[in-house]
C-alpha cells in the first residue's frame, strides 16, 4: 500500500486513528514525510485528509470530544507524548488555511505578532523584510507596511499568512487548500511560492485540485471514505507514479474524474 521513503522522514505517522465523538474520521493511517519535499493529500470530501493535516500540529485537540490514537513522530518523537508542548509544536509546524485570515492589523504587525509572543529577539524590521521577500510579497507591500492587512487582495492576504507562518521559523508548513479561494494568477503565485519554499521547508498540502497536486508536489497520498469504512489511506507514492500509473483502481478512478 505504501512506498518506503527514500530518506529519513521528518514526520512519521503510525497507526493513526481519529474520532470526533462517536464518529471515526480516520482509520489506521501509516505514512511519512521527507524533509524538503512537498506532499499533496488528495481525496473526496470527508475522506479525512484535512483531519490528517490538523493532527500533525495538534490542532484537532482544540475541538472538544475528539480522540487521537496512534503516533505522530516529529524527528522521531511522538508529538502526543505528555511532555510535548503543543504550542511549541505549532510554532515548528505552521499551518495556512483555505481562507486567508490575516489579523485585522498592519502588514508589519501580522508578521511580527507570532515572533514577538514566541520571544523573538532579533531585528523585527529585518524579520518582516525576510518573511515578505520569501513569499514574494515584499515588492508589492514594502511602501505600505503600516497599512491594514485586510486591505490587501485575497492572493496577497494568503501570501501574507504564509509569511506570518514563516516568521516564527517553522520546519514544516501545512497548507489546507491554500489556493482554493484565489483566482488563477494568485493561485499560480502560491504554487510558485510552494516550489520556492520547499528548498527550506517541508510542505504538506491538502488540495481538491488534481492539476495543482500534480504541479506542486513530489509525493501524493490518496485518501478515501465509503459507507463501510472511515477515512483511510488508499495509496501514496511519487506524484509522477500516482498521476501516470497508480496501482490502485480507486486512485485511478478518483484522479481521472471517474469516481462513482
Amino acid at each position: 500500500m505504501s512506498n518506503e521513503p527514500t530518506s529519513t522522514p521528518i514526520i512519521e505517522i503510525r497507526n493513526l486513528s481519529f474520532c470526533y465523538g462517536d464518529f471515526q474520521a480516520l482509520e489506521n493511517v501509516n505514512m511519512s514525510f521527507v524533509k524538503n519535499e512537498v506532499t499533496a493529500l488528495i481525496g473526496p470530501s470527508g475522506c479525512g485528509k484535512s483531519t490528517v493535516l490538523r493532527t500533525i500540529d495538534r490542532m484537532n485537540e482544540l475541538i472538544p470530544e475528539t480522540r487521537t490514537e496512534g503516533e505522530v513522530l516529529f524527528h522521531g518523537k511522538n508529538i502526543y507524548d505528555d511532555d510535548v508542548d503543543p504550542v511549541e509544536i505549532r510554532r515548528r509546524i505552521g499551518i495556512v488555511f483555505q481562507k486567508p485570515n490575516p489579523f485585522p492589523k498592519s502588514i508589519h504587525d501580522n508578521i511580527t505578532w507570532g515572533a514577538r509572543i514566541n520571544g523573538y529577539r532579533g531585528d523585527m524590521d529585518e524579520l518582516v523584510e525576510i518573511s515578505l521577500k520569501r513569499t514574494a510579497l515584499w515588492d508589492e507591500v514594502k511602501d505600505k507596511l503600516k497599512q491594514n492587512a485586510l486591505r490587501l487582495s485575497g492572493g496577497q492576504q494568503q501570501r501574507l499568512c504564509i509569511a506570518r507562518t514563516l516568521a516564527v521559523q517553522p520546519e514544516i508548513i501545512l497548507m489546507d487548500e491554500p489556493a482554493s479561494a484565489l483566482d488563477p494568477i494568485s493561485t499560480s503565485k502560491i504554487e510558485d511560492l510552494i516550489y520556492e519554499l520547499k528548498q527550506r521547508y517541508t510542505i504538506i498540502i491538502v488540495t481538491h485540485n488534481m492539476q495543482q497536486a500534480g504541479r506542486v508536489s513530489d509525493k501524493t497520498a490518496f485518501f478515501m471514505v465509503n459507507d463501510a469504512r472511515s477515512g483511510y489511506l488508499v495509496e501514496w507514492g511519487s506524484t509522477e507514479e500516482i498521476f501516470f500509473s497508480p496501482r490502485d483502481p480507486k486512485t485511478e478512478a478518483y484522479i481521472s474524474g471517474r469516481f462513482g
Partner: peptide, 9 residues
C-alpha cells in the same frame, strides 16, 4: 480535458 493515468497513456 487534462487526462491522467490510463487516459493520458
Amino acid at each position: 480535458e487534462q487526462p491522467v493515468a490510463t487516459d493520458l497513456r
